[in-house]
């Protein structure tokens, strides 16, 4: 693979990451966001695979495959399972901010992310490092989603976007972390998603809905 092809493909993957995140902000339907998450996971996994092929690093490619399996298949599947029994109004993300404002804020956050990650880009001129701000943007968008979504499952989605962002920074800026660390982090996220899913189910059973506003009553 030539350097030019590699740079193009990495940029393409990073673009897919960012676009899928923006689309998650745009769409309200949770089933659609689950599909978008699958796309995002595939794009994220593509980065270490591409780097692995370019450098002939098998380990990195294997990590990429594992990432794809986990983030493009397992997580969306878990969310879809959780959604299957829900009523229509439960499948909505129920944002606190309307879509237009959300998209404007997302645009601002992407700019902020590029501004914040300037020192990181300056360290290394490789095409991957130049795309690192996308990871930052994903983190910020994930936090924004956490702040503005009311339903428990949309919080899970937001959390996954955030985590994808962290992983993206790791892959883009440092050519991947050691397998053990990546494995540990991924298992942590898996556990968190399972627990959040169970919690959402319990909330549903207890309050008849997964609206986080119901939790306000639990305050002391």
């Amino acid at each position: 693979m030539s350097a030019h092809t590699y740079a193009t493909l990495v940029d393409l993957a990073a673009g897919a990451l960012l676009l899928s995140a923006v689309l998650v902000v745009w769409r309200r339907d949770l089933q659609a966001t689950a599909r978008l998450l699958a796309v995002q996971g595939a794009a994220l996994g593509a980065i270490p695979i591409l780097s692995g092929i370019r450098r002939g690093d098998v380990q990195l490619a294997v990590v990429g495959v594992a990432v794809v399996a986990l983030r493009a298949v397992v997580f969306p599947k878990l969310i879809a399972v959780r959604l299957r029994g829900e009523l229509a109004h439960e499948r909505e993300g129920a944002p606190l901010v309307n879509t237009t404002a959300s998209l404007l804020v997302t645009a601002t956050l992407v700019i902020v992310a590029y501004a914040l990650s300037r020192p990181l880009v300056r360290l290394d001129a490789s095409p991957a490092a130049r795309a690192a701000p996308v990871g930052y943007a994903l983190v910020l968008i994930g936090v924004f989603l956490l702040v503005t979504r009311r339903k428990a499952l949309s919080q899970v989605v937001a959390f996954l976007v955030l985590d994808n962002g962290i992983d993206a920074v790791a892959f883009l800026a440092t050519l991947g972390v050691p397998v053990v660390v990546e494995l540990g982090a991924s298992l942590d996220v898996l556990l968190a998603v399972v627990i959040l899913g169970v919690l959402a189910g319990r909330m549903h059973a207890k309050f008849g809905g997964t609206d986080l506003d119901e939790l306000r009553e639990l305050r002391e």
Binding site: L96, V112, L116, L140, V143, F144, L146, V147, T148, R149, R150, L212, D213, L215, R216, E217, L218, R219
Partner: peptide, 18 residues
């Protein structure tokens, strides 16, 4: 500032991260 809203607490956290 602490009205029990999970979203608001997350916003505080996000602000702190930024």
């Amino acid at each position: 500032a602490h009205n029990g809203s999970v979203n608001r607490y997350l916003a505080f956290g996000a602000l702190a991260v930024i």
